[in-house]
Simulated assay, not measured.
Amino acid sequence: MMMTKEWLSQLPVKNIKYCKTIHGGDTNKAYQIKTATKAYFMKVQPNSSVAYFDHEVSGLKEIAKAGVNTLTPLFQGQINGTAYLILNWLETDVGSQADLGRQVAKLHHFHSAKFGFGDQTQNRVMIKNNQWNQSWAEFYIRQRLEPEVASARKLGYWNDEREEHYRRMVAQFTAYYDCHKVTPSLCHGDLWFGNVLFARGMPYLIDPDVIYGDREFDLAMTTVFGGFSNQFYRAYYEEYLFDGELAQRLNWYRFYYLCMHLCLFGESYGRAVDEILSHF
């Protein structure tokens, strides 16, 4: 959408001299806005309420509470039916993946008594129920996998073969967590490399979809689209050990991310979903 002078004049940032569209992901429109002395990062979502960005704002604050670098929400509101979120602007540069690994480990060392985040969010295809749950297996199956598979089925991206392998995966997942305890860790929730940036030589985690969950949920996402180096995993491991069977468990969580992409972007992700399910 085009940002008009009339719309921009209603923002709490005054005397805006410049507004430029920038790459900001698939969900929201993103802009850099500038005054004579300062730059800001702004996300907007048309036809949305003032509460549209509440989950992201809460997540950014929770990540900051954990002592991990992230963006700072400055202003939030709605103008003419379009929700906006204004954050600080960071000039990006390069940094160390080892530092990134230590930051993610620090995030995962921040714990809660339960799983979830106490709210709910909605994307184009499903509602994500983040209400608190004592059981990780129940949270992941009932509040993540089942709504996602229901969406895939409704959209015509599901079939009997996928259903059969999916049920085997869920049975294996349930059996494992009947015998293994999980500590609820603060998870970014969408930890692909596009949601990492470096500024002032330090890593920052951006665009979160936070929950308290199994930290392996985040680690799985780092393996889906690449970008994370061996230095990242070595540094993470030094701060927060994981066992030798981690690789066998990650497919449970890779499925969630790839099936979400199947729902959002169609059958071009079907082969990747089928490859994951073929392990079960």
Rank of each mutant, 00 (worst) to 15 (best):
Y140E: 00
I141A: 07
R142Y: 00
R144G: 03
L145T: 00
E146Q: 14
E146H: 13
E146G: 04
P147G: 10
A150Q: 13
A150F: 07
A150Y: 09
A150T: 10
S151Q: 06
S151Y: 07
A152H: 08
A152I: 06
R153D: 06
K154A: 15
K154P: 01
Y157V: 07
W158H: 12
N159T: 08
N159V: 05
R162M: 15
E163F: 09
E163S: 14
E163N: 14
E164C: 10
H165R: 08
R167F: 05
V170D: 02
A171V: 03
Q172D: 01
F173R: 00
F173H: 01
A175R: 13
A175T: 05
Y176V: 04
Y177G: 04
C179A: 14
K181H: 15
T183V: 14
P184R: 05
P184S: 09
S185F: 10
S185K: 05
L186I: 04
C187D: 02
C187W: 08
H188S: 07
G189V: 05
D190V: 07
D190P: 09
L191Q: 01
W192H: 11
F193T: 13
G194V: 07
N195P: 08
N195F: 12
N195R: 11
V196I: 15
V196C: 10
V196D: 04
L197R: 13
F198S: 06
A199M: 08
Y204I: 03
Y204W: 11
Y204L: 04
Y204F: 15
L205M: 10
I206K: 11
P208Q: 03
P208S: 07
P208C: 06
P208R: 05
D209E: 10
V210H: 03
G213R: 03
G213P: 02
D214G: 08
D214V: 06
F217D: 00
D218F: 11
D218Y: 09
L219M: 12
T222I: 03
F225A: 13
G226A: 10
G226V: 08
G226S: 10
G226K: 08
G227V: 03
G227S: 08
G227D: 02
S229I: 09
N230I: 03
N230M: 07
F232P: 02
R234Q: 12
A235Y: 13
A235Q: 11
Y237N: 06
E239A: 15
E239H: 14
E239T: 12
E239P: 08
L241V: 14
E245Q: 10
R249C: 01
R249Q: 01
N251T: 07
R254Q: 02
F255H: 03
Y256D: 04
Y257T: 04
L258G: 02
C259G: 01
C259K: 00
C263A: 15
L264D: 04
L264A: 11
L264M: 12
E267C: 09
